[in-house]
Design a protein around this nucleic acid. Structure first.
Lengths: 333, 333
DNA sequence: CTGTTAGCGCCTTCAG
DNA sequence: CTGAAGGCGCTAACAG
């Protein structure tokens, strides 16, 4: 048997299709008794409205696009889980767009905005250049997470500079006076990035404590454990070496931990390691780190998106929401 | 300005909309020169076809649904990444359906199948009961990964029993004769699960080596690190205790590692730990484990799905594809 | 090879 | 409060 349409329901309930549409969309303009009758017919026919048709005539897609640098940032998983959690209770589907390159970002954006494949976009971490920004359609709701560069849209962010300061102060409070830094090297085109900000906070804390910034102990590496391990090994092989590292991302911190192990150094006695993010694996490794509320960032983003979508607008389209940070004391400092 | 439609393109190219549709869909029945003209118009107008309209009239959604128990299985992330990778080069979008309960699974299936929100479904890990199976529509392509219960559809699987045997034999070859087991406890409704199979292989290997199966050393726990840690601690507190554990999932193995640390036991000297899965974090922790090719499982699934979709059918709709397993030697055995 | 014509299933006026 | 009619943008079948 063919899947039933709104027309079948109408016939069965003895009403016009307009009425069926009304109860489907929760219009209050339907007599209670009629509504019941329609609902019954819907149930009996096991009818559910065709999504494509709804989209076409209603203009909504019932879909939220999540645009993200998939695997490069492990933090993505937890953010996504927060997003899912909230969307789960909504009528929206989650479509995942994983971006591998700047060129691909543009393609996707063009596609998403042009074809209007989603009612709203949640962008995780990706930096947008001017061209990308130009592609955005003001009518397409967008919320940025971990990215302060998409001005004029709501952004869920943290104060990275503050986080860097916090981490460093903690290290200093634990008696460290020779502190190194390892972070992600980034395309200079993007200007200030989370890593840069964290490093900035690091240097400020150093200065505030009257400690010297020692360039030979600091390194920006590509985003993988091995690079961090390599860098840490090199730094630790110098005659004069740091007693602690502030590593701007947990994933890189794991590499530093491995380096310490390689060299037979005990953590935290010989060398302390402070991470940033508090991703899942940080717990496994007992990494002391700065927690940013990753899951919460996802929840907030989708909650705001839902509000925006249901209200048709947002109070403050360019609001910046700052999530708190906190030190998680574990075993590496 | 309004976003252009196929009609605008037709007018601009001086052809009928049918012709535009043809070039859009790669029909060969168009004169080269005409095609060029249409393509030019498309480019000039920056036109891209409306997805909803395509769906409605063509019946295709250009979407693949991935149905998965999101966060419970860490292996999900890597499988998903394999799926993404392949879909990325296709015209299909990836829609994520994360399932939290059996009831939700049914809802989702009803929705997905009934409303035909996707052209194909890739199901990760989830067990289907008879009711779920009944919901499936034979016309909707489906591929199961890590799940052999959805017969009559293609399944990407591993030989869990074999894996359990492999792991245990490795432990035995390393001199262990007192071996414990920790795995995920599962709803008995589902009968044989990966954990059960792995345990089966474990017992067989034990028997083959003339070793006793010691029930007091074996535990099925709920799927989180803490439970495994707790269980391992209890087992290791007994007078007579195992010198090694085969843990049926990496994530649980992390808990066992933590337990060893809690008790001041050295790994692998005092107690060896063998995992299963080889998820990302296993590398961080130097866990010796059985690798199943998670990313590859995702790649294969989506590749098959794409083939199925483009051919309109599959050679063998109920094919079972078995991925190889291998021991990854690291530092915990 | 190409233009024209029906729908696809639903939402949204507009009368009644 | 409810039924009927028009149209969303595209594909497919049919004439030419």
């Amino acid at each position: 048997m063919r899947t039933p349409t709104i027309r079948d329901v109408a016939k069965r309930a003895g009403v016009g299709i307009g009425t069926v549409s009304r109860v489907l969309n929760g219009s209050t303009q339907v007599r209670e008794e009629t509504r019941e009758r329609v609902l019954a017919a819907i149930r009996e026919l096991n009818f559910s409205p065709n999504a494509a048709a709804r989209q076409l005539s209603g203009g909504r897609t019932f879909t939220i696009g999540v645009v993200t640098p998939f695997f490069t940032y492990p933090s993505f998983v937890e953010r996504l889980s927060g997003i899912q959690e909230v969307l789960d209770h909504s009528e929206y589907d989650l479509v995942l767009y994983s971006i591998r390159s700047q060129a691909q970002l543009q393609d996707r954006l063009r596609f998403l905005v042009g074809q209007r494949r989603a009612d709203g976009l949640i962008v995780l971490s990706l930096r947008f250049d001017d061209e990308d920004l130009r592609l955005l359609n003001p009518d397409l709701p967008l919320i940025a997470v971990d990215n302060d560069t998409i001005q004029r849209y709501p952004r869920i962010v943290i104060d990275n500079e503050d986080g860097g300061r916090l981490a460093t102060e903690y290290l200093i409070a634990h008696g460290h006076r020779a502190i190194g830094f390892i972070g992600e090297v980034t395309d200079s085109a993007f200007g200030f990035t989370p890593t840069r900000h964290r490093m900035h906070g690091f240097r400020e804390a150093l200065a505030a404590a009257g400690l010297a910034y020692h360039a030979a102990w600091c390194r920006l590496v590509s985003l993988d454990q091995e690079s961090a391990r390599q860098a840490a090994r090199e730094i630790l092989s110098q005659n004069e070496r740091p007693t602690a590292f502030f590593v701007a991302m947990d994933m890189l911190a794991f590499g530093v931990l491995a380096a310490a192990e390689d060299m037979g150094l005990r953590v935290p006695d010989d060398v302390a390691v402070m991470g940033f993010d508090d991703i899942q694996a940080a717990r496994y490794l007992h990494l002391t780190t700065v927690r940013q509320h990753l899951i919460e960032s996802g929840r907030l983003a989708s909650q705001h998106m839902l509000d925006w979508l249901s209200a048709g607008h947002l109070g403050q389209e360019n609001q910046q929401i700052k999530l708190p940070l906190e030190i998680v004391e574990r075993a590496t400092v």
